[in-house]
Design a protein around this nucleic acid. Sequence first.
DNA 1: CTTAAACTGTACATCCGTGTTCGAGTTAGG
DNA 2: CCTAACTCGAACACGGATGTACAGTTTAAG
Lengths: 210, 210
Amino acid sequence: MATTPPATTRTTARTGAGAADGGRDRAKRADAVRNVESIVAAATRVLAVDPDASINDIAKAAGVGRVTLYGHFDSRATLVREVVDRAIAQTDAALAEVDLDGDPRDALGRMLEASWRLTHRFGALVVAGSQVLPPEEMRRAHDGPMTRARGVLERGRQAGALRADMPIDWQLSVIQAILHGASAAVHRGEITSDDAPGLVRDTALAALTA
Amino acid sequence: MATTPPATTRTTARTGAGAADGGRDRAKRADAVRNVESIVAAATRVLAVDPDASINDIAKAAGVGRVTLYGHFDSRATLVREVVDRAIAQTDAALAEVDLDGDPRDALGRMLEASWRLTHRFGALVVAGSQVLPPEEMRRAHDGPMTRARGVLERGRQAGALRADMPIDWQLSVIQAILHGASAAVHRGEITSDDAPGLVRDTALAALTA
DNA sequence: CTTAAACTGTACATCCGTGTTCGAGTTAGG
DNA sequence: CCTAACTCGAACACGGATGTACAGTTTAAG
């Protein structure tokens, strides 16, 4: 260690899916990758409950030092972005598997149950995102599921299976509200997470039925 | 104005300044009272939108200096407590005027419309309170309206006018969720504040009807 | 008119969260 | 086993928010 290293080796978080852009990076060490996973998982878990959780809280929850976290993510915003991006990916993947054909009410029911799991898992993550990321970026997160849900709603309205005497945007807001309300109720112990999906489905369906 | 002798007074809000002298209290001056009102009003307005608003923001919105605010309220928590207390008082007063007799569905509708106005006015105030005040103190805020609403719900369920196949706590949560969802939707420009009460009433009623 | 209460801005001490730097210890992997 | 990558804790700079202290001016009220 007599000679000073030429430059401090700063590891830029380069977990990009797809091909590596630009130059080739050395393969990341195994424990590094493992730690990044721990951090993202912990951040998701913690931020879903408390969107104002500090970097310290997240690092502690991940079982790593605060400095180590900064070694993988430039800033809090970067970390939040990564977490949100993964949540979006999981959400899209989960919703893409939902069968939207057949009776509109049944289709909506299936979508509601799937959405419940996601809402319950990610909770207040959207709040954390909104506080750090530009609103445009959050827009994208909700856009996918929104248009998907809107499609089902429109079909149900035209088929006469759902009431059409309210703005469709309002009906989407109601679904959102019930989903988040259920998450809060579970977290408060008023209902169990087993009962939640059924209650959400029945209640939302009742609210939207003619 | 008049008769008030400068002798008998009671200590309410003190002008904090350090090592106070012996113990001579005088009646509060008129402009002081006026400023306190401005501060509380501004705090209510600001905190209802952004529960994390700083003391500076509130003072600015009230048109007074930051130091003046501290002259009337020891700390941020004190201010929030005062604001919340007043909100509770207004809420109780407004809900006490609602006629809960007659057809349960009509009674619930009236209560929903009244609750909407309060929710829209106070918005995220409950969040600000929860972050600063002990949870027990927030409990009290919701307890009054809650038991009142629960009474109407129970009556409606036993009369067969409302569905009884879900936990009553869940139904209360749904009402809460729809109210807050509507407030968010208005604030987001999706619906107008004129349409909101009707939509809230119709939607909640539909969600709770057998 | 006189006085004390109240207001104001500035400045200061403090706490907390963020982001960075440093030196040293630990571990993966050739 | 040797080296570079990785991790860790402590310490520092910075900014924002909370309270407090001070000194000068305005204003209510007797």
